[in-house]
Design a protein around this nucleic acid. Structure first.
Length: 585
RNA sequence: GCCACCUUAGCUCAGUUGGUUAGAGCAGCUGUUUUGUAAACAGCAGGUCCCCAGUUCGAAUCUGGGAGGUGGCUCCA
C-alpha cells in the first residue's frame, strides 16, 4: 500500500510517528505506544491509553511535537538481544509481542533513539529531523479506533493520524484538494440536487431514490440490460426471499450468515431476505435438462439484495443494507470457461467506458489465502484451477491488474473493479468470480457430447455493480453534471414573462412527447433568477423563450458549459435525441 | 459492532458566563412587479433546539443514557 510513497517522504513521515509518540508520552506517561508507520499523505501511531484521548488533546500534542523537533538532531541505533529488548519494554505487552515475533522470524532487534525517545524499530528515518523536517509541513488530523494487529478480536487502540509533507505548500495544497473533493461528495450533492435521501424512520442504510434519482436509475437499468442483451444474456426475475434449505445448500448460512437478516418464520418455514441471487438462478437453471449445445446459459437480473452490514460500515449510497445489483450467473462448460470469462471482462470494460469510468477504476485479482480455512471452502484443486484460469484470461486480455491475497469470495477467486471515493478511500465497484463450488453443492449438470452428465462451471459477475454504489460514484465523478442521457432533467424551459408562457408550454409538451426529460419554470421570477436556478440544478440545457423567440419561432438554447445557440425546435430535438440515444455527454 | 467527532426551521448556519416569547439567509406561501442570462420588492408562515432522564428557581447551553450521521478500524458490492 505504501510502496508508491517516495522513500524520503516515507522516512519523514515515519520520523514524525516517532516524534508524535515522544510527545504523547510526555503528556500521557501512562500511554503504551505500539506501532507507527508512514502512510499515504502522512503517518499514524497506535497507542493504548488507559484514559481516553480526545480531539482537544491533539493540539497540545502537536504543539509539543513542534517544541521537541529542534532537539531532535540525530538518530542513533543499536542492535540488542531479546533479553535487553524485553527488559526495555517490560511494561509494554504490545512491544513484547512484537519482539517475540521479530525473534521468531529470525530477524535482528534494533532500538532507535532520537532526542529522549527510544523505540523498537527497523529504521527508515530522516537523518537530521531538526533540519530535514519543516515544522509547518505537518499537522495532526484526527483520532480513530483501530484493533491491535488489525484483528477485531483484539483490544481496540487509539490511532492518532497526522498529515505530513515536505513543505507547508504541499500540505496546504493537500488540504485544499481534500476540501475541493468534498464538494463532490455524493452525500452532499445527493441532498443539494435532490437525488436520494436516507430517513432514519425508514432505517439506516436504507436509502430512497427521489423522482430525480429514479429517472437516472432507470437509465442505468436500461443501459445495463441493453449491454447484457448484446453479450447474449437472458433476463429473469426472481423473488427477494428464499427458503432456508436454499441457503443451507449454497453454504451461505455457514459462511455468510452474519451478513444476513434474521429469518422470517411463517408457519414453521423459515425464509431469508436474500443477500445474493446465485441460488435462485441455479434453481432456475435446474428447472430442465440442458445439452452441451445450450451452454453457456447466462441469466441476468437487476436483483434486490439485503445484507446486514455492521452499522459503522454504512456510508451514504456507497455502503447500504438494501441494494440492487446488476447481477448475472453464467453456466458454462469447463472447456469454454476461459473464453467466457474473457467475454465477461470485455463486457465489463464496455460498461465502464459507457459510464465514463474507464480512467478512474483499477483492477484487482483477488485470490484466497490458503491459510484462512475459516473463510474459504476447502478444495485445493478447485481453487488452483480457478485461480490459474482466471489469471490466464486476465493476462491474455492484457488487463492491468494487481494481485491481492485473502480477498476472494468464499467460493472462488474474483476480478474486482476498484474505485476511489472523494475521501480517497477505495471500494469495490463490482466483481466477476469463477465458481466451481456451487455447481458441486447444487449438483448442477448438463449432457455432454458422449451422453454422460457433466458439471458446468459458474461465473458470477456484475455488469455495472450495485446501482446505489455506481450512482454514488457517478455523482462524485461528474460532480452532479451528468452526461445528458443520465441527467434527471435534461432541459429547463425558461419563459421570460407570462406573455411567453403558452409558447413555453407548447415547447415543453413537445419535448416531453419526444421522451426528453423537461422542466418548465413557470414561476413569477426574473430571468436572472430562473437562469441561476437552472445553473445550480446542473441541468444540461436551458431554453429561454421571449418576444424574439416567439416572433422568429426559435429557441435560445444554452448548454451548461456556456455554449449558446439559436435553433428551431425540430433541430434541437434532433440534436438532443441523438445525444441521448448515443449515451454521450 | 468498536474508537473519535457532529446533530438548532425543508436547506445552510447564528445563538455570549445557564436567564423573558430561540434568530438570519435561501427555499415555501400571498400580494405587487412582467421581467433577456447566476438572487425584483413587501408581507406571511415555518421549531419536540435529535430523543429520554437528571442537576437547577430556570437548560438549545451542564451531566448521564440512547438514536442518527461523518471519519477511521474490522468487514465488504
Amino acid at each position: 500500500m505504501n510502496t508508491h510513497i517516495p522513500k524520503h517522504l516515507e522516512h519523514l513521515r515515519h520520523t514524525l510517528s516517532h516524534l508524535m509518540a515522544a510527545a504523547v508520552l510526555e503528556i500521557r506517561p501512562d500511554a503504551l505506544p505500539t506501532l507507527g508507520p508512514a502512510i499515504e499523505n502522512g503517518f499514524y501511531y497506535d497507542f493504548d491509553f488507559p484514559t481516553p484521548i480526545t480531539d482537544t488533546d491533539l493540539l497540545e500534542i502537536e504543539k509539543l511535537m513542534k517544541k521537541l523537533l529542534p532537539t531532535w538532531k540525530e538518530f542513533t541505533h543499536r542492535e540488542v538481544t531479546k533479553e535487553e529488548a524485553l527488559e526495555q519494554f517490560k511494561e509494554n505487552p504490545y512491544k513484547q509481542e512484537l519482539i517475540e515475533e521479530i525473534v521468531s522470524r529470525g530477524e535482528k532487534l534494533t532500538l532507535y533513539t532520537c532526542g529522549k525517545f527510544t523505540d523498537l524499530c527497523r529504521g527508515g528515518h530522516v537523518e537530521h529531523p531538526n533540519k530535514d523536517i519543516d515544522p509547518n509541513a505537518f499537522k495532526l488530523s484526527h483520532i480513530a479506533g483501530a484493533y491491535w494487529r488489525g484483528n477485531e478480536k483484539n483490544k481496540m487502540l487509539s490511532r492518532v493520524y497526522g498529515l505530513a509533507f515536505e513543505s507547508k505548500k504541499d500540505l496546504d495544497e493537500y488540504i485544499k484538494q481534500t476540501e475541493e473533493a468534498k464538494k463532490r461528495d455524493h452525500k452532499k450533492l445527493g441532498k443539494e440536487l435532490d437525488l436520494f435521501f436516507i430517513d432514519e424512520k425508514v432505517g439506516k442504510g436504507l436509502p430512497m431514490w427521489t423522482p430525480k434519482g429514479t429517472a437516472l436509475k432507470f437509465e442505468l437499468e436500461n443501459f445495463t440490460r441493453d449491454l447484457e442483451r448484446k453479450y447474449g444474456y437472458e433476463h429473469v426475475s426472481t423473488p427477494y426471499l428464499g427458503g432456508e434449505e436454499l441457503y443451507r445448500t449454497s453454504g451461505h448460512l455457514d459462511h455468510y450468515s452474519k451478513n444476513m437478516y434474521a429469518p422470517i418464520d411463517m408457519d414453521g418455514d423459515l425464509f431469508y431476505l436474500r443477500p445474493m441471487a446465485c441460488p435462485h438462478h441455479i434453481r432456475m437453471f435446474q428447472r430442465k435438462s440442458w445439452s452441451y449445445k445450450d451452454l453457456p446459459v447466462r441469466y441476468a437480473e437487476i436483483a434486490d439484495y439485503n445484507r446486514y452490514e455492521q452499522s459503522g460500515e454504512l456510508m451514504g449510497m456507497i455502503r447500504v443494507r438494501k441494494f440492487q445489483l446488476t447481477d448475472a450467473h453464467v453456466f458454462v462448460a469447463p472447456e469454454g470457461l476461459k473464453e467466457e470469462f474473457k467475454d465477461v471482462c470485455r463486457m465489463i470494460i464496455e460498461g465502464l467506458n459507457g459510464l465514463g469510468f474507464s480512467n478512474i477504476v483499477s483492477y484487482r485479482f483477488s485470490k484466497r489465502d490458503p491459510k484462512n480455512t475459516e473463510k474459504y471452502f476447502q478444495n485445493d484443486e478447485l481453487w488452483n484451477t480457478a485461480e490459474s484460469l482466471m489469471q490466464e484470461a486476465l493476462d491474455e486480455l492484457e488487463l492491468p491488474y494487481v494481485t491481492a491475497e485473502d480477498e476472494a469470495a468464499f467460493y472462488g477467486p474474483k476480478l474486482d473493479v476498484q474505485a476511489k471515493n472523494v475521501n480517497g478511500k477505495e471500494d469495490t465497484l463490482f466483481t466477476a468470480q469463477i465458481d466451481f463450488l456451487l455447481p458441486e453443492k447444487f449438483n448442477i449438470e448438463y449432457t455432454s457430447t458422449d451422453g454422460t452428465k457433466k458439471r458446468p462451471v459458474m461465473i458470477h459477475r456484475s455488469t455495472i455493480g450495485a446501482l446505489e454504489r455506481t450512482f454514488a460514484f457517478l455523482i462524485e465523478h461528474y460532480a452532479g453534471e451528468f452526461p445528458t442521457w443520465l441527467s434527471p432533467v435534461q432541459v429547463s424551459v425558461l419563459p421570460i414573462s407570462d406573455k411567453h408562457l403558452s409558447y413555453a408550454q407548447e415547447i415543453y409538451s413537445t419535448l416531453k412527447k419526444h421522451n426528453i426529460r423537461t422542466e418548465l419554470d413557470d414561476s413569477n421570477e426574473t430571468l436572472g433568477k430562473k437562469v441561476r436556478a437552472w445553473k445550480i440544478s446542473k441541468t444540461p440545457y436551458s431554453i429561454v423563450l421571449g418576444d424574439n423567440e416567439m416572433k422568429e419561432k426559435t429557441l435560445a438554447v444554452e448548454h451548461r458549459s456556456g455554449i449558446k445557440e439559436s435553433v428551431s425546435l425540430s433541430v434541437f430535438i434532433e440534436k438532443i435525441s441523438k445525444e441521448i440515444s448515443n449515451r454521450t455527454y
